[in-house]
Design a binder for these strands. Structure first.
Lengths: 150, 150
DNA sequence: AATATTTAGCTATATGCAATAGCAATCTGG
DNA sequence: CCAGATTGCTATTGCATATAGCTAAATATT
């Protein structure tokens, strides 16, 4: 007793997760699963998620400073430093002095190529993600999520 | 120039985030924001998110082993150890020997009180979360999220 | 019954990401 | 001109997660 019915199957007790109805829990699990997946895809082009999002953000711009990027992506300046250093030593970005204290972060040629690869990976990822969601719920996801932080 | 129009306001460039339409990005940002908020709430009862979810999961059960908890919540056994140790040294759980190698993880009296506090905190959190989402999107969030990992 | 495999729980360690505190150089508004 | 804000940085810490490898106990195989 104390155990329901279907326990002789190999179903790993996922259907009776008593927390799955909680929005916060579902959000955490979904985000973890999706970010693990995206992380795996980006591995193949040797980038991490935060690095890839920086490349996407600055592509086609020449006026984004470290602090501007950080303010859009909500990354503290202390954490931007090693991030940009990695991108810089991979030859993907250049720092162009704007004035005595500010540098614009711009894509190098190599960085533009990489950004195109990122776009290919994320396009596939995003459409796979949406395809998993029943059509009836699909158009509601992004607006609902954006209402939570924007 | 090169800067749009509304820049004299104190809006921190959030409305022109060019990544916000991407489901994966929105998911990550929303989850980060919500988990930071929940983490803050749980601070007041001195628990972390994963600890709180363990308390909720095992409340009312006496047959959950460490590996059963880990398999439901998707936590590796290596990571369960320090988690359960913290709960144990806080006096919230007891380990009841089942056989030579298995222990059931059960709530102590103190743990049951704590679980009630957790439920109070998360109830408030979950309803606040839902309240932020426009009503038209609200019923779609949990099903859409669960489609991504269940 | 003897052996092999699987399972439960653990140690040690590494990674990704974010937070805090504090600092030096530079820019800017009154 | 100068006080205060901004830019970019160092150093350190915390959390959640991951891998590799271990011991001991339970279970399956022959």
């Amino acid at each position: 007793m104390a155990r329901p019915q279907n326990r002789n199957q190999n179903t790993p007790a996922v259907s009776d997760d008593p927390l799955a109805h909680l929005p916060g829990y579902a959000l955490r699990r979904a985000a973890n699963a999706m970010m693990a997946e995206l992380g795996g895809l980006l591995d193949s082009i040797d980038l991490r998620i935060s690095e890839a999002s920086i490349l996407l953000l600055i592509d086609g711009r020449d006026d984004m400073t470290s602090s501007a990027i950080g303010s859009v992506l909500d990354i503290r300046s202390a954490n931007m430093v090693p991030l940009l250093n990695r991108l810089s030593s991979a030859g993907l970005i250049d720092k162009v002095r704007i004035d005595g204290k500010s540098m614009a972060i711009v894509l190098s040629d190599k960085g533009r190529e990489k950004a195109a690869e990122v776009r290919a990976v994320t396009d596939k990822f995003e459409s796979d993600l949406l395809r998993r969601i029943p059509a009836a719920h699909r158009p509601h996801l992004v607006p609902a999520l954006n209402a939570l932080w924007r």
